[in-house]
């Protein structure tokens, strides 16, 4: 009977933390001089809907190139993100661009419980990639992770 209690406990934690990501189409051309040399901002590229009934949250972001390419040959930091809209008060630093790398970086933290789902809008920043990257299609996964604080 005590073992049963333990399983219920884990299930409650899983239900209490939710993450849903909606995004616009994320296909981007680099064809003009300005594409290679200046950053572009895609307004509200992501909508992250989250809830966390027990604790505050961290949201992390990272990128992962598709498996069929050499890591050394892909643009290393092509993307950044920043919060565009928050329905709750968060640190102003999250409204500033943060570059996504191959390791998780914190893109948002909120210190209170979120009992009902709320949605954060994120901008996507396309960093200039310069001219050292060979012409090619480069596929990535942008991975968002939510954890409890």
């Amino acid at each position: 009977m005590l073992i049963n209690v333990s399983f219920v406990c884990n299930k409650v934690h899983a239900q209490n933390l939710t993450l849903s990501v909606q995004s616009s189409s994320l296909n981007f051309d680099y064809s003009k001089e300005s594409d290679f040399e200046t950053s572009r901002t895609i307004q509200k590229a992501f909508k992250l809907t989250v809830s966390s009934r027990n604790r505050g949250i961290f949201i992390y972001g990272r990128i992962q190139p598709s498996a069929n390419v050499l890591m050394s040959s892909v643009p290393q930091n092509p993307f950044g993100v920043k919060v565009n809209y928050s329905p709750v008060t968060i640190s102003s630093s999250y409204f500033q661009p943060r570059n996504l790398t191959f390791s998780d970086i914190t893109v948002l933290a909120y210190n209170s419980r979120i009992t009902r789902p709320i949605a954060f809008d994120f901008d996507l920043i396309l960093n200039p990639i310069g001219y050292t990257i060979a012409p090619e299609n480069y596929d990535y996964s942008i991975i968002f992770t939510i954890t409890e604080q």
């Binding site: 994320l26 296909n27 996964s141 942008i142 991975i143 968002f144």
Partner: peptide, 8 residues
């Protein structure tokens, strides 16, 4: 949750 993106 992953989201796919492509740079052409």
């Amino acid at each position: 949750q992953p989201v796919s993106a492509r740079l052409s």
